[in-house]
């Protein structure tokens, strides 16, 4: 059984911009590995290098943040789970944005990391507030489906299935899928190609 994820609380880091892809989150050269260990230090490596210290992940005011606040279509591109793995190892336990790419969001769920969406105006207000006062506590509450910050409480979007998996601690899908037992094989036997199309 995976652990139950009901809320993530902590300071936030604001990373503006839309369509930030997984190649930027973790450049491909760091995928030459057989474990996910050590990926944390390479999160956004090339962007950070080019920003010469002026990247949110290097901003001391955001140091130790556990919630990453992003724009639209965050995590698009490659299916590499190395992306959320590296952000998790960097210290993030939840993502708040306008929208997320589908495979990235699925990978986050599989790691017990919630991705929640806010309405554009709410997101802008949160980004502005956290930028002004990065020391404030931000709470992502999956039970209440909201996000609380200095400016109040905002309704948070999260897919029903994802929310349930996190709240019930079933986000590590393997165990849940195994519970189907023989019905996996029973179903498989009814699929014509699995049965060899009737060939002996």
């Amino acid at each position: 059984m995976a652990s139950i994820v009901e809320r993530v609380e902590g300071r936030a880091c604001v990373l503006r911009g839309s369509d930030i892809d997984t190649d930027r989150i973790i450049p491909a050269r760091f995928l030459r590995c057989v474990t996910f260990d050590g990926l944390g230090e390479h999160a956004f490596e090339d962007d950070r290098e080019q920003a010469k210290g002026d990247h949110p992940l290097d901003d001391e005011r955001f140091a130790g943040a556990s919630i990453l606040v992003v724009g639209e279509n965050f995590g698009c591109g490659s299916s590499r789970e190395h992306a959320p793995q590296s952000l998790q190892r960097f210290g993030f336990q939840a993502f708040v944005g306008a929208s997320f790419a589908e495979i990235f969001a699925g990978n986050c769920t599989a790691l017990g990391l919630p991705c929640i969406t806010l309405e554009p105006n709410d997101l802008e207000a949160l980004m502005d507030s956290v930028t002004l006062d990065p020391s404030q506590q931000v709470v992502v509450d999956l039970v209440a489906r909201n996000l609380t910050y200095k400016g109040g409480s905002l309704p948070a979007g999260v897919r029903d299935g994802t929310r349930k998996a996190l709240l019930e601690g079933t986000w590590n899908a393997t165990r849940v899928l195994l519970e189907a037992g023989d019905s996996i094989d029973t179903r498989a036997a009814t699929i014509p190609y699995v049965a060899g199309f009737g060939a002996a």
Partner: peptide, 16 residues
């Protein structure tokens, strides 16, 4: 799919 889901398919031949 991501790596955790590769695990799911290897172990169960299924995806959620």
């Amino acid at each position: 799919i991501g790596t955790s889901q590769v695990r799911d398919v290897l172990a169960t031949q299924c995806l959620a």
